[in-house]
Design a protein around this nucleic acid. Structure first.
Length: 184
DNA sequence: GAGGCGATTGGCT
DNA sequence: GCCAATCGCCTCG
């Protein structure tokens, strides 16, 4: 499947399909193991109130990344999907460029390198300069999963609005998640 | 133009 | 488990 068609769907459909895909920035990264979906009619979504200077990338069409600053400190990366929906990348299993990631994070334990949206952006060197960048143009690259991993599904993390919507997806049993999924 | 807030993280209790 | 750090964006006046 072409990436343009892959992302021209609602985020809730794209988010589970991103699990097992390989995300690299300048050759550094790994396999996506945790994602969350955000929709324009979802109060928790940055696109809920319409376009603003911060979220303009969410309205720039499918196949781009939306990078924003969280709590004034961290960066978080989303893949933009159809109709101003987007998928937040929450965790990776680091596989490429481990030494670079260890240096950037000041850590050695691979389980802690990319186990959160802010952590993985720090490890991959993602900053606001990538906001709006196409997902398939260097330094970014994305390889779709050859095989769909077993899914875990649960409510999204860390949000205050619409906290019960089950739009968090993870690779079942992965040791690289930001948090365990609720049993079930 | 001022003030409050957030899709987080890491350190301390 | 609790809480501070830190700042761009958004809302209101």
């Amino acid at each position: 499947m072409q990436l343009s068609a892959f992302f021209d769907r609602d985020a809730a459909l794209v988010a589970p399909d991103l699990l097992g895909c390989e995300l690299l920035v300048d050759g550094v990264g790994g396999q996506i193991v945790e994602t969350e979906a955000y929709h324009p009619d979802d109060p928790a979504s940055h696109s809920f109130a319409g376009p603003t200077p911060r979220n303009r990338s969410m309205f720039a069409g499918p196949g781009r990344v939306y990078v924003y600053r969280s709590y004034g400190i961290h960066w978080c990366i989303n893949f933009v999907c159809r109709n101003a929906s987007a998928v937040l990348i929450r965790a990776l299993e680091p596989t490429q460029g481990l030494e670079v990631m260890r240096r950037r994070r000041g850590l050695t334990d691979p389980r802690s390198l990319c186990s959160g949206p802010g952590k993985l952006c720090a490890a991959l060197g993602v900053t606001g300069t990538l906001d709006g960048h196409p997902i398939d143009v260097p330094p970014l690259s994305l390889h779709l999963a050859a095989r769909a991993p077993a899914l875990a599904i649960g409510p999204r993390i860390g949000i205050t609005k619409a906290p019960d919507t089950p739009w968090r997806f993870g690779v079942q049993g992965s040791r690289f998640l930001s948090k365990p999924f609720p049993k079930g």
